[in-house]
């Protein structure tokens, strides 16, 4: 397994897109979260905003970049034919996928953590100026606070799971364009449908099973009881999607000719 890990790490490290994408993940997470925090105001007490969630808004977009990075690690091999060399060199195909998943986790975790913590720190400086003060019922954002810590750590974990989900789908689908189309649809279409459908039961069901809606409940720190699914159960749903995608990808990788 060490050889596989080494090979995959070299591929990821030397691909020119990796560095830029990781940088973009950090930048988008911080900038978009800060911009949102700068625009939301809390004019009076009981304004109903979730300060932690506002300061993590950027994750909604940076997840797309994480997904692209993950899809690239496998679909670019299919595009260039490199996958045949990889399989010849490492005949145990499941190990290739496992090595890719492990190697992908590290940089995603690092970039996600830097981005998410940076977002919370930057937003935490802006929010008190917009009325998120103790007079209106908001303490300063602090990682020492249990629910904020859960939201922050959960958001990093969320990004990692999205990366692995994307890797699994891209392994199963092979073609780069189709893979990224499927992943982005899963990330963004289901939440829009859940929003537009007005039947409350359907809406609730979609929010419980959609990887993004369920997964991002981890960011909610106020009114947790009114959520369609509890934060960690939601993360579990996303983990289920990820596991299914990786298993499916593994199956297709083993069954099909490269």
């Amino acid at each position: 397994m060490r050889c596989e890990l080494h090979a995959e790490w070299t591929k990821l490290r030397t691909s020119p897109a990796t560095g830029w994408l990781l940088l973009a993940v950090v930048a988008v997470t911080v900038v978009l979260s800060t911009a949102t925090a700068a625009l939301v105001t809390c004019p009076s007490s009981g304004c109903g905003h979730d300060a932690t969630r506002i300061s993590l808004t950027g994750v909604q977009v940076s997840q797309a970049l994480v997904a692209v990075l993950a899809a690239l690690t496998i679909s670019s091999e299919h595009t260039t034919g490199m996958i045949r060399t990889s399989i010849t060199a490492m005949p145990r195909r499941v190990r290739i996928l496992a090595a890719k998943a492990i190697v992908l986790t590290g940089p995603t975790l690092a970039a996600g953590a830097i981005g998410v913590v940076g977002a919370v720190v930057a937003a935490g400086r802006l929010l008190p100026g917009n009325g998120f003060t103790s007079a209106h019922g908001y303490g300063p954002l602090s990682l020492a606070d249990g629910s904020t810590l859960r939201a922050v750590a959960g958001s990093v974990l969320y990004l990692v799971l999205i990366a692995l989900l994307s890797l699994g789908i891209a392994t199963a689908v092979r073609d780069a364009a189709t893979a990224i189309g499927v992943v982005l649809s899963l990330l963004y279409l289901v939440p829009i449908i859940a929003l537009l459908i007005s039947d409350p039961q359907w809406q609730r069901l979609l929010r419980q099973i959609s990887p993004t809606n369920a997964g991002l409940t981890i960011q909610v720190t106020t009114d947790v009881s009114s959520l369609p699914i509890s934060p960690w159960a939601g993360m579990g749903v996303l983990a289920g999607w990820t596991a299914a995608a990786l298993l499916g990808g593994n199956l297709m990788l083993r069954r099909r000719d490269a």
Binding site: A71, L72, T79, A176, A177, G181, L184, I192
Partner: peptide
């Protein structure tokens, strides 16, 4: 010249703003 970049940018500038 690469589909993944084209699709990502295409979706990011048309569908993503609509979603947000």
């Amino acid at each position: 010249r690469r589909s993944i970049a084209a699709v990502t940018v295409g979706v990011a500038v048309v569908v993503l703003p609509y979603f947000l």
